[in-house]
């Protein structure tokens, strides 16, 4: 699906300064239909990576291939952008129109899709994010979570192959965050949408198939949540939190209890503790 080979990226040099390297030698392969989370605190290069995927930025070295199309080639750009649906942090700054359905129609309009098909795509995209009832509403009157779901519908209308979500929950309240994450997980589960979720919230990645941790432009960990989270000390050194359950198990182990570290779910964690106590 997405192939990243020896990717390097440096922002253009400001006068009198060395170009600042943001990504160094990143190698990744994203499987079709997978749910991948990319973790890292500010400045780890994770948002730059997202922009490289949709050809907003072009690699300084190495290459990014989306379905075999290189982002470095001018003629591929539109097709790559159609295949890679990008959703950003601030929903207000992605919504173009003052009516929900007009906004969702923006991308297919750009692609030159005929009117009847735009109608069908808009209805389908709104249904996919559970916002059909708000078809004719003004976006600025919706809640943050609802706006972000509209933004997701807006890229779904392009019928993309992969959804790249760049810190989409950062500006939302807990309720909005839950709404958006549920929507994204449902899209992945029910429609087989490939999802790349970029975040710095540990709690959002528990249900991912794969977790990639980035630090200073490099991939430092890569594996399933069960493989990554037990590495508590390393994660803490990267100033990342661990889920509450892992934290509890970690502390228990420190006082000598023999519990596994990879029981991520609350029930699973409770079972592990009960088993030890018996």
């Amino acid at each position: 699906m997405i192939e990243i080979k020896h990717l390097r990226y440096a922002y253009p040099a400001v006068e009198g300064q060395e170009p600042a390297a943001v990504l160094e030698d990143v190698d990744l392969h994203i499987e079709k239909g997978s749910f991948t989370a990319i973790l890292g605190h500010n400045g780890s290069g994770k948002s730059t990576l997202a922009k490289l995927l949709s050809a907003v930025l072009l690699p300084s070295g190495g290459e990014v291939l989306v379905d075999g199309l290189s982002t470095a080639e001018e003629k591929n750009i539109m097709e790559i952008r159609r295949r890679v649906g990008m959703v950003f942090q601030n929903p207000d700054n992605q919504i173009v129109a003052n009516v929900v359905e007009e906004d969702v129609a923006f991308a297919p309009e750009n692609l030159g899709v005929p009117a009847e098909e735009i109608r069908a795509r808009v209805d389908e995209a709104l249904a996919a994010v559970g916002m059909e009832a708000f078809r004719l509403h003004a976006p600025h009157l919706l809640s943050g979570g609802q706006k972000q779901r509209i933004a997701i519908a807006g890229v779904l209308a392009m019928q993309p192959e992969v959804l790249v979500l760049d810190e989409v929950t950062a500006m939302l309240d807990p309720e909005g965050r839950r709404e958006v994450l549920e929507t994204v997980h449902r899209l992945n589960r029910e429609r087989g949408m490939t999802v790349l979720l970029i975040t710095h919230h540990m709690s959002e990645v528990e249900k991912a198939d794969r977790v990639i941790v980035m630090e200073q432009g490099r991939v430092v960990m890569d594996g399933s949540p069960k493989e990554v989270f037990p590495r508590v000390e390393e994660l803490r050194r990267l100033s990342l939190d661990v889920p509450g359950t892992v934290d509890l198990l970690y502390e228990l182990r420190r006082i000598g209890w023999d519990v596994p570290l990879d029981a991520l779910g609350v029930d699973e964690c409770a079972d592990a503790i009960c088993k030890f106590l018996q």
Partner: peptide, 26 residues
């Protein structure tokens, strides 16, 4: 800042000017 982010978001949604655009409401 908003303008800059909006421009990026519009580009990511395949906006490339009026050429070849269609409309939801004809």
């Amino acid at each position: 800042r908003r303008a800059d982010e909006l421009a990026t978001a519009m580009e990511c949604r395949c906006y490339s000017g009026g050429e070849g655009r269609t409309k939801l409401h004809v």
